[in-house]
Amino acid sequence: MDMDSLSLVGVISIATAGLTIAFGSIGPALGQGRAVSQALSSIAQQPDEANTITRTLFVGLAMIESTAIYCFVVTMILIFANPFWNYFLN
C-alpha cells in the first residue's frame, strides 16, 4: 500500500495535533497547580489580602493558560484549517 501526499498530510496532521495538545497541556497544568497551591497557602496565612491575591492569581493563571491556548489553537488549525491539506487538495 503506498500513500499519496494527501493521506500522508492527513496522518501526520492528526497525529501531530494529538501530540501538540497532549504535551502542550502538561506544562501549563503543572504551572497552574503550583500557582493555585501557593495562592491558597498565602490566603490561609493572610486572609485580609484575599482580594489582591485572588486578582493576581486570576491574571497569573490567564498568563500561564495562554501557553496551553496557543497549543490548542495550533491543534485546531492542524485539524480544521490545515494549509497543507488545502494545498494538496487543489
Binding site: A62, E65, S66, I69, Y70, F72, V73, M76
Partner: peptide, 9 residues
C-alpha cells in the same frame, strides 16, 4: 489569541 482561543474552544 488568549481571548480567541478561550471563546473558540
Amino acid at each position: 489569541v488568549r481571548l480567541y482561543g478561550n471563546m473558540m474552544s
